[in-house]
Design a protein around this nucleic acid. Sequence first.
DNA 1: CTGATATGTGAGAACGTTCTCGCCCAAGAA
DNA 2: TTCTTGGGCGAGAACGTTCTCACATATCAG
Lengths: 362, 362
Amino acid sequence: MSSKSKATIADVARAAGVSTATAGRVLGHYGYTSEEKKEQVLKAAQELGYRPNALARSLITGKTRTLGVVAGDIQNPFYASVIRGISNVADANGFGLLITNSDEIPAHEVHAVELLAQKQVDGLIVTPIDTRRARHLFSIKAMGMPLVLIDRAVGGLMVDRVATDNIAAAEQAVRHLIGEGHRRIGIVAELVDENFMTLDQFVSHAIAGDPIESETLYPSWQRLLGYIRAHRIGGLTVDPRLIMRAGSYSAQAAQDVVPPAMTSAHPPTALFTTDGTMSEGTMRALTMLKLSVPENLSLVCFDDLDWMSFLRPGITTVSQPRLAMGEAAARMLLERIRGEEYPSRTVLMPAELILRGSVSRV
Amino acid sequence: MSSKSKATIADVARAAGVSTATAGRVLGHYGYTSEEKKEQVLKAAQELGYRPNALARSLITGKTRTLGVVAGDIQNPFYASVIRGISNVADANGFGLLITNSDEIPAHEVHAVELLAQKQVDGLIVTPIDTRRARHLFSIKAMGMPLVLIDRAVGGLMVDRVATDNIAAAEQAVRHLIGEGHRRIGIVAELVDENFMTLDQFVSHAIAGDPIESETLYPSWQRLLGYIRAHRIGGLTVDPRLIMRAGSYSAQAAQDVVPPAMTSAHPPTALFTTDGTMSEGTMRALTMLKLSVPENLSLVCFDDLDWMSFLRPGITTVSQPRLAMGEAAARMLLERIRGEEYPSRTVLMPAELILRGSVSRV
DNA sequence: CTGATATGTGAGAACGTTCTCGCCCAAGAA
DNA sequence: TTCTTGGGCGAGAACGTTCTCACATATCAG
């Protein structure tokens, strides 16, 4: 029956009484074969339980029909959705997915990219960690392997990219708070060190309206920029004490940084959190502090997580099209794999501010 | 430099002035080579930007150092964590991960398994959908490909498996509610049709204490069994009207099935939800119904999701070791891949009841 | 009839590795 | 001396496919 170990094309050919070339043609669906031999071969293949060896096929065709993905952490809902989006279009096109986690550690990313390249993936989707140093990614591009970036950009690396329009989205969110009468608005953001400017320098540049190379900025810095722009537009000054910098991508860091600001002499009347992880840490802190939303404090988050819709009173948040981002990235990658030529494209996806009950008028 | 397209072992050998065999030996770390030639080869490889082709290597060794995973849906926190666990041990052992979603659709699972087998993965981790018919899985086993099942079992398929001890965990959760004085306890569960017994038959068997082949039962049915056993132990009768059967794996289905029961003549004073998806749907329903937990209704969930700890008053829930389940599965799989022989093993992981604030005494 | 075009077949090369073998050399044992 | 042992090296087979050819035939246009 079909259970035995492994039958090769040669075995099938022998059983069907044809050459391996002919058997290969019918099994691989290429070239010409007569109906007669086709039936013989198919019958023999069936009986022997023949299963094509994709390795051998890929070795000679140079195509693996496999996409490589380097994400931060599958457990994070953001990445989980993005990957799901990628998976949707990969599936639909008969591509497999080789997935790795970088945990936002540059060395892990380098290692993962190397592994995927050795496994000869047809293309790579990466959420790059270091927006400045990324020799491995330049090397991938130079090798001619299609590459698409998600969420972050790499300075000088001209490849397709899809991201949320972070600045506009954050600006809209904070303007909403200002519109509701809030004047002291805190922001909870990772703001990991980018080593090119201190936070103070960055803030004063932004407040002064100096031009800032925002493309290669980390998302949390872009969202901070949107926060500052909303203040400028609203004619408000930015109080640096209201910028709660977690310094790392963890809910715990956010949870730690919120209480001091909330118990200070002039606490904010509203908070803006810059991503799902910060939102979670902030919620934990607010629960510990027994602060009620929106009675004691208004809140706008970034990224629409499951619980935001049913946790009373409902969290007003910026919704990113995570699934669509993954799908768009995969589609662009497949176009490149097919050999289509374009100048490198950047797709900035709009985010939507979803109004729920976590903001009150002051 | 290291950027050019693709240098092969033959290219490196030529540049280093040695045979391909010798170059292969140093680049592949096997056999003997003199320090002198080793240096020459390494230098040449460096200059040509040589990167081993894992495909060619795998074709001849018969090993790909890649694991295949067929999960329900990466976006679901349960699967996301399990996969992350698998990824942890795969990474640590230099294995890659080929991941697919079945969306709980049998045909998808069959297709995914076939794809992964063709790609010659060294082993497979599957969350089987159909616990009765699974020819493709028997075939995988017959082929000699190592296979580990997670969360569900397949009748008659003797392979390693890791799962939560669902019956015991559910029983403990419901006994807790009974201990707090609850007498009318509702259960919200998928209970997709298993076609071997109707729900009524199943319930009456369980109430009567008749022996039930529980190994190959779906998790939601196992949890229902635990619920019934807790009633038996507590000397309570089971009211069939309190069994809210969603009938499919979606939060929407749960959300739809809860309101009728809550607005009936004799509503329950407490609810037990049998997994994360049911919990989410139930929360949505409770929010719409404006029922406060634990004032108007007590609640115990299954699976500890992020929000359960910070959503006030904190949700009492059964915590499954999802990450550890994935890690255990991957470890068992690697043992099999290494050729270790055991009779097929079943690892039932204990779950922990985490007491928070969603249960009140009546 | 001549040439082109499409269908059909098999022998054997190719893909980029690892593996098997035979050969050489040096050092130590008999 | 002669035999063994183990390091060191290269030629060429092998893995299981697809690809390139050469060589058929049949059909159709001119």
